[in-house]
Design a binder for these strands. Structure first.
Lengths: 210, 210
DNA sequence: TCGTACACGTCTACACCGTATACGTCTACA
DNA sequence: TGTAGACGTATACGGTGTAGACGTGTACGA
């Protein structure tokens, strides 16, 4: 009822945004809220629940603000996907938590429902809808998490460095692709292309027996 | 050179398998190896590097054992995907680490190369290959991580519970799907269906301008 | 008006964590 | 024989999450 819990969660989110999620300790959070560490336990079961709650606060941003009916199903899907990516860009620490904490909050459920209705409208046979929802959300969260945690980062996966280290015919694929691996990658347009491909995948499923 | 480091990493993996990754502390690991905690630092830079090394040990299992040439590109892709899922089923704690620790180890690179060559063979235009590699690996790792950390688990996302809690027209998608949401889900066949859809996606890209 | 719940916060304490620093010891090789 | 390096130990510091016992205010029914 009281907004005290939300106040605490938002303070925790602020700490994570400013100093990384590792800086969110019960002591640091208590300091920020102006209270003793143990006082936090009145509002949050334990540290794991605190992290859950923090993610929950972010899920609010996933939901569309304008009425849904005005857009086509693939526009709604794209909007949701971009909203998810935006959240993890603004709160990179949250990306991998999205995997462990399923969408059980009301806001999370509403996001899932957006995908369900979009897929139904696209003509996907109903038995296939839950599977495709999982496929799509898995990819979107995975992309966001990869981006946020540096799996795509040039520094980490730098192609130049990669091929330098080991290849003497050992990595024929890398060798064949040569220059294409050195291109700087624009993750926004890549994300767009991926979403377009997935939309086509949805249409193909709908066509198969729709 | 010495196998001491591998011995330590394997001990750490064993602890994680038995008691969860949180149980892998420098002290517990040292105990297991029969040594003082600080001795570990001769073989491992710090705890983060220890986790990296543990993941590295697991990546070995991703590579195919039998010669590659005998299988078609989509069979090779499927084999790799299944190997990845198997690893995270046997070592659930490792799933989300795959996102943060990019494939910079030799074994990781070889796995990426398998995808590259498969896509080239499928007829994907070369500029598109790296993008599709990321799309595929992102989905596969995402699926594995979701499964391993319970995002798909009935307990957490139980549809019955979900719909019970909030819907009064609030979740039209859930309502429309009704019974389909109550089906027990077989993640193995779902994974198969997903991979088949993605293979079709690859073929579509190859067809577009191949 | 009093009594009593109850929400909220504090204080103290414990067991555990990663790791910096300094010190031994054993082996190999010039 | 001396010396360098690999390997392990001992001690210590500052941090962590949280259990348990204890206060304090405010609201409400008798």
């Amino acid at each position: 009822m009281s907004g005290r819990r939300e106040e605490i969660l938002d303070a925790a989110v602020a700490i994570a945004d400013e100093h990384g999620v590792d800086a969110v300790s019960m002591r640091a959070l208590a300091d920020r809220v102006g209270v003793t560490p143990m006082a936090l336990y009145r509002h949050v079961k334990d540290k794991a629940a605190l992290l859950d709650g923090m993610v929950g606060r972010l899920l609010i941003a996933l939901l569309p603000t304008d009425p849904v009916e005005e857009h086509s199903w693939d526009e709604r899907l794209r909007a949701l996907a971009h909203a998810a990516r935006k959240v993890t860009q603004q709160h990179p620490w949250a990306a991998h938590l999205l995997f462990s904490r399923p969408a059980v909050t009301p806001d999370g459920l509403r996001a899932v429902d957006i995908i369900y209705t979009a897929l139904i409208e696209a003509g996907v046979p109903e038995p296939q809808v839950p599977r495709l929802e999982r496929l799509i959300s898995t990819f979107v969260i995975g992309f966001a998490a990869s981006e946020a945690s540096g799996r795509f980062a040039p520094g980490a996966g730098d192609p130049r460095g990669r091929r330098g280290r080991l290849d003497g015919g050992e990595l024929p694929g890398h060798e064949a692709l040569g220059p294409w691996l050195d291109l700087p990658l624009d993750l926004t347009t890549e994300f767009e292309a991926d979403l377009a491909d997935i939309a086509r995948l949805v249409e193909a499923v709908a066509r198969r027996e729709g």
